[in-house]
Amino acid sequence: MPLRPLVNRLDLCSINTATLGHRLPIQKTLDLIARAGFGAVAPWRRDMEGQDLNAVRRQLCDSGLKVNAYCRSTYLTARDSKGFKAALLDNCAAIAEASELQAECFVMVVGGVPEGSRDIAGARAQVAEGISMLRDQARSYGVPLALEPLHPMYAADRSCLSTLEQALDLCEQIEPGGFQSLGVAIDAYHCWWDPRLRQQIQRAGRQRRILGLHVSDWLVPTRDMLLDRGMMGDGVIDLRGIRRSAEAAGYRGHVEVEIFSRDHWWTCDEAQVLDTCAQRLQDVC
């Protein structure tokens, strides 16, 4: 399939609310994103705390914004069964919220090694159990789960799923035979380094499991591995090449900007950040 042009097609693009640093009320954030011409938004749960979801949904409809994803899960890995059950309940509530917002998927960041443990295999087994249990909730609400593998530097504390291959293996283990309610979110920041990335994107496409594509850039040097992501074009990731692979594999969803930048972009005026995102999406991605 030919690469979709993004020039004058911001309707194909989404802004993850983390990109604006969670500084504004969600109503103002949504207004700015819609005014900038983007077609979709990926809200974080923290931006929804204390909000009337029906009112937010009405604003989304009035502005023409789609919700391409709802971010993100509570970590599944826990020290004991009580913590594991609490995580499942919280994620069930989040899936219900995603449904109310008519989100196209719910992003799962699964958790790392529980505090005090050295058993990463056990953490991965716990994740598999949790995803298996949440799948029924996701199916009942019509909100697929998008497993998002994170860079290996986060294996200890954020995600014991480190590669797209691992995420797809887990999807096949729980849901063999192709997509029903489990898929993957491909985040360029986390996956760009993987020598098997393009092969695994093709595999995900064959199974129709690509539910999201996130873009930002890897800065050299990176001063903070969590909070110093780059604007597209400021780093070393071949973003257009990754998008070309995803679209060749059949992906036709939104291209979502997700940038954590405590010391730079989160200090800038939000409208300026959105203008820069719009320019870079069209020029770089």
Rank of each mutant, 00 (worst) to 15 (best):
G178L: 05
G178N: 10
F179N: 05
S181G: 15
S181C: 08
L182T: 08
L182M: 05
A185E: 12
A185H: 07
D187M: 06
H190T: 14
C191Q: 12
C191G: 02
W192Q: 04
W193H: 07
D194V: 06
P195D: 10
R196F: 12
Q199V: 09
Q199N: 05
Q200C: 14
I201E: 13
Q202F: 06
R203I: 10
A204G: 15
A204I: 00
R206T: 07
R206N: 13
R208H: 15
R208Y: 02
R209H: 13
R209I: 08
R209E: 11
R209Y: 06
I210H: 07
G212C: 10
H214C: 05
H214N: 09
H214E: 14
H214G: 00
S216G: 02
W218G: 11
W218R: 14
L219P: 07
V220C: 11
P221C: 03
T222Q: 14
T222I: 08
T222L: 02
T222V: 11
T222C: 14
T222D: 01
R223Q: 11
D224F: 02
M225A: 03
L226E: 10
L226C: 11
L226I: 12
L226Q: 10
D228K: 04
R229N: 09
G230P: 09
G230T: 06
M231A: 14
M232S: 14
M232Y: 00
M232Q: 12
G235Y: 03
V236N: 12
V236W: 06
I237W: 06
I237G: 13
D238I: 10
D238M: 09
L239Q: 13
R240F: 01
R240G: 02
I242R: 05
R243D: 07
R243Q: 07
R244S: 14
S245F: 06
S245R: 03
A246H: 01
E247M: 03
E247F: 03
A248V: 02
A249L: 12
G250C: 03
Y251P: 04
R252G: 11
R252Y: 01
H254W: 13
H254N: 08
V255F: 07
V255I: 15
E256F: 04
V257E: 08
V257N: 09
I259C: 04
I259A: 03
F260H: 01
D263M: 04
D263Y: 04
D263Q: 13
H264I: 14
H264Q: 09
W265Q: 00
W265G: 00
W266S: 08
T267C: 09
D269H: 07
D269F: 02
D269N: 14
A271H: 08
Q272H: 04
Q272G: 03
V273D: 00
L274H: 10
L274C: 06
D275C: 08
C277Y: 00
A278M: 01
Q279E: 04
Q279T: 10
Q279D: 05
R280V: 10
L281M: 08
Q282N: 04
D283S: 15
